[in-house]
Design a protein around this nucleic acid. Structure first.
Length: 573
RNA sequence: GGGGACGUGGUCUAGGCUGGACUAGGACACCGGAUUGUCACUCCGGAGACCGCGGGUUCGAAUCCCGUCGUCCCCGCCA
């Protein structure tokens, strides 16, 4: 028996006999006639049931009907199928549904736990169906594009070796080799480098990754990356056009948005200086200005001293912010104090200029400052003085908070840009750490600094930011063992430790490894933003709660003693 | 590891600050009845909650206090 689809019936189908199956979305019983909205994956169509047939139908019952399509007496323009209805001839209840713990046809949102416990009902809701579909189309568009560019999707192991660097690993005990453990991959980083070394010149994979860290709205213990790597790359710019083409293709094929190419490139230092963030939200202005010169040796002693001591004074214009009250300004100051600044000065522009520095700084200077910061009449200017990076990132934090509060962030833009020229290292606790990861290549022209001034070495690495979120992150890799070992040493990983943990990888570099590089996209975040959702749980079929639990299956769970015994494990009380 | 918000019939919530007529109110869902053109159908009637759990304060606790569990958000953490 061939089945028709509910959502695709139009007026041309009038007169046709159809067989439909689906879920009872809503029932409207008018006595002599009953209307049933029948839902399947394609959409909703109205069925008409005459009194003689009055089968008792409940919401979410699964039914199959045969009937005739006909034009409606009163069309419903709100429904794609609104011009027709199906007069039922025979009806069959395939499966009965109990009263529901959450409404599939209702607008309201039940608690997260109820939604996850009854995820099969939650996922039936049109919004979730749309999200699942969007995710599928995203993955499909990625595969189409990359296939067209000569990429090969290769799977890498889920049971692999623990290389405890960065996040905490999920461990899997080995039964065959008691006392040893596999780890679930945090990313296929080393495997993809080995694959290009293996002659797979263009590799990609849509792959699950695992990190045992605390959860957030945009973080799950298992998440999906679009991972890719290419051989014979030596500079980031060699990779960007292809990635930009990918991003534009995906936006076009999924949500029909055209992305203007090429994307802007923003050096890391400039991103910090102008936006106070290494993942700036570029959908709006309010750029931070450096006003240190105005204060150098100038009227306000506190700021002059900061500048004399190598610090900076930075200014953030806040569009329409002159209406902020003293109380609100005090709250902003407490945010600044949270970042370690002693205070936060302000200037309000308007018919009269007012400022927390009014007693110390003449009003012409204040006007000049406001103009320098790009403030218009009615704007607020916030001034932060301190170590240059701290002054900037503090204002960057305030920039985001205030723009959100004042409704200045346009929701219909995508704010995409490459952030380039990250430093290779950052100062950790008593030692250097990788800014990106230890396999990132330094920029050739900075190699001479690597021993003397490592913090000044720039990396061949890059982030793709979108709307203030890190969408993708990648680098040109090190492909020579000597340099890799040198980097390990600077990071405090000695030769024995390097051999023990990464020996397999270092060996691979000794047998003809091409220069290579790649990137990894956070697929969940990407789909989340295209779906205009606030949490990646909305675009993952079966996500975990903030404590890492799955209310549907009640994982994680205790296991039988027998299972533990086989693995040679004993639990501490 | 730390901070915050929330937890009331199946679902969403009002009440909580200011304890007493709260015998816990409403909407949706559910059950029964009416209903031949609805589309979030409508109308009438009904059942369903010891207010997450435990303890305390009080003559009296949904309400105040402590603990605990759960959910969410944030900081730390996430090379």
């Amino acid at each position: 028996m061939r089945r028709d689809t509910c959502g695709e019936l139009r007026r041309e189908a009038a007169g046709r006999k159809v067989v439909l199956a689906g879920w009872v979305h809503r029932v409207r019983d008018l006595g002599g006639v009953t209307f049933v909205d029948l839902r399947d994956a394609s959409g909703i169509v109205q069925l008409v049931l005459r009194d003689a047939q009055s089968a008792h139908l409940a919401r979410e019952d699964v039914i199959r009907i045969a009937g005739a399509v006909r034009l409606r007496e009163a069309p419903n323009p709100a429904l794609p199928t609104g011009e027709i209805e199906v007069e039922i001839e025979t009806i069959e209840v395939l499966s009965h549904a109990k009263p529901l713990p959450l409404g599939v046809a209702e607008e309201g949102t039940p608690s997260e736990e109820t939604r996850l416990r009854y995820r099969y009902l939650d996922l039936r809701r049109p919004r979730m169906q749309r999200n699942l579909r969007l995710r599928h189309r995203t993955a499909l568009a990625i595969r189409q594009y990359l296939d067209g560019e000569g990429f090969t999707e290769v799977e890498t192991p889920m049971l692999t070796r623990s290389t405890p660097e960065g996040a905490r690993d999920f461990l899997v005990p080995s039964r065959l080799a008691r006392g040893t453990f596999y780890a679930l991959p945090q990313s296929p980083q080393l495997f993809k480098q080995i694959l290009v070394t293996s002659g797979v010149e263009r590799y990609f994979q849509i792959v699950r990754c695992f990190r045992d860290e605390d959860l957030r709205a945009d973080r799950q213990p298992e998440f999906t990356q679009l991972d890719l790597e290419m051989a014979f790359l030596e500079e980031p710019e060699q990779l960007f056009p292809l990635l930009e083409g990918l991003v534009a293709h995906v936006f076009r094929k999924t949500i029909g948005v055209e992305i203007a190419l090429p994307l802007p490139r923003l050096p890391h230092a400039e991103a910090i200086a102008r936006y106070g963030s290494d993942k700036p939200d570029l959908r709006f202005g309010m750029e931070i200005a450096d006003v240190s010169e105005t204060f150098a040796g100038g009227p306000f002693r506190v700021f002059a001293d900061v500048v004399a001591g190598g610090g900076a004074v930075r200014a953030l214009p806040v569009t329409g912010g002159a209406t902020k009250s003293r109380g609100e300004l005090a709250k902003l100051e407490s945010v600044a104090k949270g970042h370690g600044l002693p205070g936060l000065a302000w200037i309000k522009t308007g018919e009269e200029i007012t400022s927390s520095l009014g007693k110390h700084v003449p009003s012409e200077t204040l006007s000049a400052l406001a103009a320098r910061a790009g403030a218009q009449n009615g704007d607020l200017v916030l001034l932060a003085a301190g170590k240059p990076d701290i002054a900037s990132t503090t204002l960057g934090d305030l920039r985001l908070r205030l723009a959100d509060e004042l409704g200045l962030i346009p929701q219909d833009r995508w704010g995409l840009a490459w952030i380039v020229d990250f430093p290779l290292f950052k100062a950790g606790e008593g030692r250097l750490e990788s800014e990106h990861h230890p396999f990132t290549s330094p920029r050739a022209e900075d190699l001479s600094l690597i021993e003397r001034e490592p913090l000044k070495v720039r990396a061949k690495c890059y982030d793709l930011v979108m709307n203030g979120v890190e969408l993708a992150s990648g680098s040109i890799r090190i492909h020579r063992r000597e340099l890799q070992e040198q980097i390990f040493r600077i990071l405090g990983i000695g030769p024995e430790e390097a051999e023990r943990r990464f020996g397999f990888f270092l060996r691979a570099l000794e047998y003809g490894a091409p220069p290579h590089g790649g990137i990894a996209f956070g697929l969940d975040r990407w789909v989340m933003m295209m779906a205009a959702e606030e949490s990646i749980r909305e675009v993952i079929a079966f996500p975990k709660t903030t404590t890492g639990a799955c209310p549907l299956t009640d994982a994680p769970s205790i296991v039988d003693d027998g299972q533990l015994k086989e693995l040679g494990l004993r639990l501490e009380p």
